[in-house]
Design a protein around this nucleic acid. Sequence first.
DNA 1: TCAGCCGTGGGCAACGTTTTCCAAATGTGT
DNA 2: ACACATTTGGAAAACGTTGCCCACGGCTGA
Lengths: 345, 345
Amino acid sequence: MTRDAPARRVTIVDVARHAQVSTTTVSKVLRNATGASPAMRARVQHAIAELGYRPYAGARGMRGRTFTIGVMLPDIRNPFFADVLAGLTEHLHGTGYQVLHGTGRNGEVIEARVTEAMVDRGMDGLVLIAPISSGAHLERIARAVPTVVVGRHGRSTVYDTVADDDHTGAHLVVAHLAGLGHRRIALIDHHETDPVRLVEMPNAVRAAGYRHAMRMHGLTDEIDVVSTTYTHDGGYLGAKQFLARPALPTAVFTGADIVAMGVLQALAEAGLSVPADISVAGYDNTAIAAFGPVSLTSVDQAGRQIGADAARLLLARIADRRTPASHLKLTPTLVARRTTAPPRL
Amino acid sequence: MTRDAPARRVTIVDVARHAQVSTTTVSKVLRNATGASPAMRARVQHAIAELGYRPYAGARGMRGRTFTIGVMLPDIRNPFFADVLAGLTEHLHGTGYQVLHGTGRNGEVIEARVTEAMVDRGMDGLVLIAPISSGAHLERIARAVPTVVVGRHGRSTVYDTVADDDHTGAHLVVAHLAGLGHRRIALIDHHETDPVRLVEMPNAVRAAGYRHAMRMHGLTDEIDVVSTTYTHDGGYLGAKQFLARPALPTAVFTGADIVAMGVLQALAEAGLSVPADISVAGYDNTAIAAFGPVSLTSVDQAGRQIGADAARLLLARIADRRTPASHLKLTPTLVARRTTAPPRL
DNA sequence: TCAGCCGTGGGCAACGTTTTCCAAATGTGT
DNA sequence: ACACATTTGGAAAACGTTGCCCACGGCTGA
């Protein structure tokens, strides 16, 4: 096996010559278009198989579609995104579309670069998962390519959205903890100042839901929010802040499981026991929350379902760009596990 | 904001017209090619900025490069792959290449589909992480597009490889456990029968390394392998097999952290304490292994470094397809944590 | 028998970019 | 002033595919 011949690709012209037909006919067969007799069809199919021909997507793109769907993920490590992606990919399986993804790495400029790269590569549709970009950027992208935005609450007339009802999710957690007898329920939040994001981003909606639910349960005075970041370290540092105080809350609600992991680690290091000394609840019901030794109470967003719905909406949008935008909102459920219990008396 | 005008893309022709030059000149400026005076250059740059022009990668691809690197991951959930991807993306940042990835989902036909899709999309280079495809398929891909294969031990003259020395890694674990005084050290393995894969796949090499290390430590008679799959469930079921026996091993080595998680869960359910009753060691040093409450002893593969090396090799391969293939082998290190301790007397 | 129709296959012009080649303009050394 | 080298800008031909046309032939129905 030498590496000398860079092996020219077999093209539609090669197939045409080999089958003794025109390229037009080959193209018709490829696309299942009318205007090719069964006999021709068979001849062409045979030539395609014999030569191992596969159409070149770049050239197809110049004349319309590339049969590619792009998915932007902020972070490949978040298992919730993996769930969404799995639902999406499964739904798209067998449609002829190929799914490719890129990571935005939770940075606005990198995210912009990735999404633009997808547009520039002629992708037929885009799914943006929990994007942090400005609404203006999202609309610009969506005007270029059919787009579905997942996990963000802003409504747009130009792109469809699928989101979880984060407000209800926060209510579920507060109701669960209050029902167990907790009053001093604290929240660890992702710091947010941008006014648009305060309305659109899931974390902000969860925080608002927490505040609202606390008031509903007559716990207005107990509202207690620590702002950090949605990372393991953010949770760790947030918990350290609580530990530095004279009195600990009896329960901590974090807007993401990964944050709860940081909290658990800080509490373990401080020699505190969960849930005996303090209860902890997360959000997203990721695989690690379900993992036995962790067994974190969390809110399940049904990521697969979200992904499948996003795929469905995207296909519809690709088929017809003029129907009004849909905005799906799914209802989350609480999964109570072993990190929450009644407070110590 | 209406959705009426599907907004025709700005092309090189628009830029040329706007700057009152030929498309050739615009192209020269775009590529920093010679043959354009500073004055022209400025004029064109200005027009590009004014129109917000970005070249269409599909068209570029038809004449050569698409400035896209494709990465195939078997499974987006594995944090080790995320590390590799991070190292890769960082190294490629600023090179003008855009990284897009696809998942092979640990299936041979899906993996083939993804890799072929990347070739068909005219990608300039491919990185295949722990592929399960046949060597023939890998060579076919690599002959079409510059390719680096990560985490597989087979050598090829047509693609470069970067792999961890899994044989040494397994030795590290056995030495660590034997040093603690363990003799009955069992392995949970990913079942493998294909003769080529037995030589090339990391799991098989780790298993061979385990056997070899056991013999080196005079523990030939204690060699004890349970074959399942490299998943959480695989570990869970493997541990169940041990638990059904009259006598448990004193230590379990799993070829991947995720498998160790399943083992820990099964042991916890059985009321056994780690490491008091039994020691557990994993492989890959993923984030969850480092997570405090888990604190799993594991083998660190330096994923970021692997990714960066793969990127470096790929860029070199793209620059010159005729230099002989490189095969990098990195040395892993053991990270001892709290799941391993001397056996109970 | 003939006009009209449909089904089949192919010619050809795009699509947006790069690259080769060429002509014109400019500069250099006598 | 002239021959000659160099620089600069542009015309045009690819690249692989699609889809609009058109031409041809066979068939239908009057």
